[in-house]
Write a protein that binds this DNA or RNA. Structure first.
Length: 886
RNA sequence: GGGCGGUUAGCUCAGCGGUAGAGCGUCUCGUUUACACCGAGAGGGUCGGGGGUUCGAUCCCCUCACCGCCCACCA
């Protein structure tokens, strides 16, 4: 016999092991292909609740399609997370008192990272297993592994040769601590308190007059090349073309006219520092003013500046410059402001510096064209659809993608330089040498570019590089394009867009047919989870406490398209309870020998209750399938939740108890088989959501019934014909349920003691209702706790009444119940009906409504009015009887 | 500044042209042999404000307010 509770801890690990070792996670040899590539988590990462949601959804789809007979490939792996990993290992070196990476040297440092990766990397893949993720681990990939590195090389070289990768010197966001360029996308602008200083720039030919400029960054003034004013700004038109003296230096700079200067802002005159400001860079270009670099890569002052500032930290320099300006009487006050200051998104520690550097760029604009077209034409579809707009907006305004990083951990750029600076981009050093030799007609020494590629460069190839490309593997043929990409909206730009571009360019086809964008997991109050806030919910703690199934069901139930998922442990507990409920329903079936399911033909049951539940199940199965196909996980899970708890447990099990204890052998056998079969179908339907408990039940129930031939994970998905739905059975059982519910309600409302058994009379009932009462009498008596039930011609005086369909139900309660309470109840009900009738009359009295509304709607209103009227009449009669009796 | 989303029961959220729903919480009752991680029942909402379209609006449109998020900018 089954225990009263499911113990996830006791079975999860071994069930997972059984699945994996059976080969169930590998795509089957035949069948339509269904593939998903996992959004590769960072090798440094550990499972957070967002991963839990993301992978739960993927796993639900993978298991669903696997059961539907498809050859499912869920491709797992990790990315090398250039910056994050390098930081982790550098920190570790420091903690262990080792030399820093520069002292260690590049080769040794990279070796240490690999060692770290082998030892500590990939925690997350073990944690994904605990969640139940059915990835094909035998195919696990890493962006830095040999195959993927080969793909990276090939892609870089080809794009270079096609002119789609080039080197350029322009401003990038620079991290002075890590000393690397970072992507514009990785910049987080943080609102910071600061000051806006007003500085006087004296006119070169008349030192008594000034142009006042406003700035939040006085230290950059040493690199000013001009002061810009708006051409239409009358305050300054006279000054255009004149020179001003740049304070603290001996340089004079021109006053130029440019639309960029906004008369509304600051003083209307703006200092132009092309080397250290993105907007100024553009202004400088327009006016052919060469940038003057005054801040170096370590964020120290440098270059052509007064000696005293040299090698001074940028913020030290700011203080010093302000002090000197003050002394010279050139500071014209300051105001406090709050402005957005660029920080590195990951570390958030260092203020980034716009820096003029030479970097490698991908011509994203050219690659974006086909990627935009593919979404426009529907070759790739976003769910929810509106995320396509986000995608389009970014793609239409796409900027060159800076792909080089000044790090050591990553794919080193395959570019070699000859002594004269001539660059050779080839897949290997030998090829570069050969190319150089061909070019120079002799051997020349080459040095390789030091930089590595942005991690997202390799991630962009993930959909095909993981399948073995550039080799023509069977996997590429079979599983590319992938079926669906499941991801969050925050990486549409980083990843989805770039995969689209690379996929279309190199594979000549989209990387995925569907992009399912899910929401973010936030805390119970709706706030973003963060370590600093301390509101992080750890999925592993939840799994320990409630089991992986409870966590998964919670996430699925809450994953409404486009909505943030709020998580607290309370909800997880309630879905754990659902698991227990389901477990006990199975336990009930097993205890009552409802275990022989395999020879059952669902078209055969004779008994209404059995025909009804088969129909209900059929409907539920259809809903679950349709909702999963549409990625509405919450609807699919919700339909199952309702069916299991509110239909199967609340009613079916209660309804069949008498049949199971009855003496009718034929009905007994049929009921056992039906219950077993329905349970069996539900176990299958629930499996994608709750794989552990369902697999365990599958195994355990198999000990009592026919032998299981295979594990549930590879069983077939219920595909039930609509013909199994019997509307007449549904009508009858709904009548019965209604009768019982209303009786219970009346009893409770009138405080009839729960144990009291009372008689029920069905008055004025149609033949069909009488027959129904007769057929289900035993059940009704039991469920409504009746002494007996019967039909009658008239309601006896002194009874409690309610209306059920065409009939009046009278509960004989004389002596048990307070009749003034009953009168009150009747009056309340009559008033309610009056309200309804009035409302309907309002509609029907409106000629426009009758004329314009669809016939069915008008007819429905008429019927409802008639019903309400009839019910009211019955209740009024009951009220009169009651008053007469008192 | 541009864009997207939200505002529905005490809380968290579904629903989205034609009788307002769930989970949790609250209250009452209950040891009916699957389950107290349970059962039965109840209470609780002019569906953010205003306007419009419509025979009819929680649902569509406009507008306002507030709350999120994304992008851009911040002299």
């Amino acid at each position: 016999m089954l225990d009263t509770n499911f113990d996830p801890k006791a079975v999860e690990a071994s069930l997972y092991e059984a699945w994996e070792s059976s080969g169930a996670f590998k795509p089957r040899a035949s069948g339509a292909a269904f593939s998903i590539v996992i959004p590769p988590p960072n090798v440094t990462g550990s499972l957070h609740i967002g991963h839990a949601l993301n992978n739960t959804l993927q796993d639900i789809l993978a298991r669903f399609e696997r059961m539907r007979g498809k050859a499912v490939l869920w491709q797992p792996g990790m990315d090398h997370a250039g910056i994050a990993t390098q930081i982790v290992v550098e920190r570790q070196l420091a903690e262990q008192g080792n030399m820093d990476r520069r002292a260690l040297g590049r080769e040794e440092f990279v070796k240490r990272i690999w060692a770290w990766k082998e030892e500590s990397g990939g925690t997350i893949t073990r944690q994904l297993r605990r969640l139940g993720a059915s990835c094909d681990w035998s195919r696990e990939r890493f962006t830095m592994d040999e195959g993927l590195s080969r793909a990276v090389l090939k892609v870089f070289v080809q794009l270079y040769k096609e002119g789609l990768i080039y080197k350029d010197k322009r401003l990038v966001n620079w991290d002075p601590k890590l000393q690397t360029a970072v992507s514009d996308l990785e910049v987080e602008n943080i609102e910071t308190k600061g000051k806006l200083w007003r500085i006087k720039y004296p006119l070169a030919d008349d030192a008594s007059r000034f142009v006042v400029v406003a700035t939040t960054r006085p230290e950059t003034m040493l690199g000013d090349v001009a002061v810009a004013v708006h051409p239409g700004d009358e305050r300054y038109t006279a000054l255009i073309g004149k020179m001003v003296r740049l304070p603290l230096t001996d340089r004079a700079i021109p006053v130029i006219a440019d639309d960029y200067a906004d008369p509304e802002k600051g003083s209307g005159a703006v200092k132009i520092t092309p080397a250290h400001d993105f907007n100024d860079f553009e202004v400088g270009k327009r006016h052919k003013l060469a940038p003057i670099e005054v801040i170096d890569r370590e964020a120290q002052m440098s270059g052509d500046i007064p000696e005293r500032f040299r090698e001074m930290d940028r913020f030290e320099a700011r203080k010093q410059i302000l002090a000197e300006l003050e002394q010279d009487g050139l500071l014209d006050g300051a105001e406090d402001i709050v402005h957005a200051v660029p920080h590195d998104e990951k570390t958030k520690l260092v203020i980034l510096e716009p820096m003029l550097t030479e970097q490698w760029y991908v011509d994203a604009k050219k690659l974006a064209g086909p990627a935009i077209a593919a979404v426009e034409s529907g070759k790739t579809k976003f769910t929810p659809e509106n995320f396509a707009n986000t995608y389009f907006h970014w793609m239409h305004n796409i900027q060159p993608w800076c792909v080089s990083r000044q790090l050591w951990w990553g794919h080193q750029i395959p570019a070699w330089y000859a002594p004269d600076g001539k660059v050779f981009v080839e897949e290997s050093e030998d090829a570069a040498k050969a190319a150089a030799k061909a070019h120079f007609k002799k051997d020349v020494p080459l040095t390789r570019d030091e930089d590595v590629l942005d991690t997202w460069f390799s991630s962009a190839l993930w959909a095909f590089s993981t399948m073995g490309w550039p080799d023509e593997t069977p996997e590429v043929k079979r599983f590319y394009p992938t079926s669906v990409l499941v991801t969050m909206y925050d990486i549409i730009f980083f990843w989805v867009a770039r995969m689209m571009m690379m996929g279309l360019h190199f594979m000549k086809d989209v990387p995925f047919h569907n992009v399912l964008i899910h929401a973010r997991v936030v805390d119970e109050k709706g706030a973003k989870m963060s370590k600093t806030k301390g509101n992080v919910v750890d999925p592993l703690v939840l799994i320990d406490e409630y089991g992986a199934d409870a966590l998964r069901l919670t996430l699925a139930m809450k994953a409404a398209p486009g909505k943030d998922v709020r998580m607290g442990r309370g909800v997880v507990e309630s879905y754990r309870n659902f698991g227990t409920k389901f477990w006990n329903a199975a336990r009930f079936c097993q205890m009552n020998e409802c275990v022989n399911w395999n020879a059952f033909d669902p078209t055969t049951p004779k008994h209404t209750i059995n025909r009804w539940i088969v129909g209900e199940l059929t409907q539920t199965a259809a809903t679950v399938t349709a909702e999963l196909e549409a990625y509405r996980f919450n609807e699919a899970a919700g339909a199952l939740y309702k069916f299991v708890w509110n239909v199967f447990c609340d009613w079916y099990i209660e309804l069949i108890k008498p049949l199971l204890n009855g003496s009718d052998e034929a009905t007994l056998g049929e009921t056992r088989a039906t219950a077993a079969w329905v349970l069996e179908q539900v176990i299958r339907l629930l499996h994608p959501f709750m794989p552990f408990i369902t697999e365990e039940l599958w195994t355990r129930l198999g000990e009592f019934g026919p032998k299981r031939e295979r594990m549930l994970i590879v069983e077939t998905w219920p595909d039930l014909p609509e013909s199994l739905i019997d509307p007449k059975a549904a009508e009858e059982i709904n009548w019965l349920i209604g009768l019982v519910s209303e009786t219970r309600s009346a009893r409770a409302e009138l405080n009839v003691p729960a144990g009291a058994k009372i008689p029920l009379l069905l008055v004025g009932a149609a033949k069909e209702s009488c027959r129904r009462l007769e057929r289900h009498q035993e059940l009704i008596d039991r469920l409504a706790r009746l002494d007996y039930s019967t039909t009658a011609d008239a309601a006896p005086t002194g009874s409690v009444t309610f209306v059920h369909g065409e009939a009046t139900v009278a509960l004989q309660l004389e002596g048990v119940v307070d009749f003034s309470a009953e009168a009150e109840r009747l009056v309340k009900e009559i008033n309610r009906l009056d309200g309804e009738i009035a409302k309907i009359d309002g509609k029907l009295g409106n000629a426009e409504f009758v004329r314009k509304a669809p016939k069915e709607v008008v007819e429905e209103q008429r019927e409802r009015r008639a019903e309400a009227q009839a019910a009211k009449a019955k209740l009024e009669a009951a009220l009169q009887r009651l008053r007469a009796a008192v």
